[in-house]
Simulated assay, not measured.
Amino acid sequence: MTDSTNLNYFQEITIIPDPEIPPYFIWSKLFTQLHIALAEMKNEHGIKSIGVSFPDYHYDEKGKSSKLGLKIRVFAPSQKDLETLNLDKWLDRLTDYVHVKGIKKVPTDKVTSYFSVHRYRFKPLDVQAQTLSDKLNISYDEAMATVAKRKSEMPLPFIQMHSQTNNSNYVLKVLQQPCSEATAGSFNSYGMNGMRDTVTVPHW
């Protein structure tokens, strides 16, 4: 399968299992650093083409189980982009907890599918109802009856994040799903899509 998204290079990061430190704690530290690095790439270099995926991601649609796994792949169109990102520098303090592999070409002969990875955001039902009430000029109760029939929030895998801007904690929920075809475009500063975009990354 040919990768038409032009994400030709990648690096893989693996969390090293530690019986004393849960993976979710390392995910928080790792992804906070990655988020800052990607924001810098966008602001200082104008690069928005770096995306991520989670090779061992699992989500049961019935909500019985979900996990990010212990790996993340960071994709870019060129080797130079990943060199500029410089993951080794950003993850220097985590060398006891994560293993960062060198930059490699995407093995296009092994690519079996494509995934879109999203920062999942869900508006609470009361907010949805108020928005619909204002939009259609109907009562709040009528609007609530309508939105109550919509899909409920998905219990997805998540990473606990800390905002450098307002010094607060928040949850980064991750929705990774297969796509029928490759799609090129830009990613946000999490290396993901918003809820309306479907820019893909290769999977093998």
Rank of each mutant, 00 (worst) to 15 (best):
T2L: 10
D3H: 05
N6L: 13
L7C: 05
N8G: 10
Y9C: 14
I13A: 05
I15S: 03
P19L: 08
I21G: 04
Y24V: 14
Y24K: 12
Q33E: 11
L38G: 03
E40T: 09
N43E: 05
E44S: 13
E44V: 01
E44W: 02
K48G: 01
S49Q: 13
S49I: 03
G51A: 14
G51W: 10
S53T: 15
D56L: 15
H58F: 15
Y59Q: 06
E61H: 09
L70H: 10
L70I: 01
F75G: 07
Q79G: 00
K80M: 03
D81R: 06
L82C: 05
K89R: 14
D92N: 00
D92Y: 00
R93G: 01
T95Q: 14
D96Y: 12
D96E: 13
Y97K: 11
V98S: 07
V98K: 09
H99A: 15
H99K: 15
I103A: 04
T108P: 01
S113P: 02
Y114R: 05
S116D: 13
H118C: 08
H118W: 06
P124T: 06
Q130N: 13
Q130P: 03
Y140I: 13
Y140W: 05
A143E: 11
A145W: 00
V147N: 12
R150T: 11
E153I: 07
L156F: 12
L156M: 04
F158Q: 12
H162Y: 15
N167T: 10
N167I: 08
S168L: 03
K173P: 06
A182H: 07
A184N: 04
S186C: 11
S186R: 10
T198Y: 05
T198M: 04
T200H: 01
H203V: 14
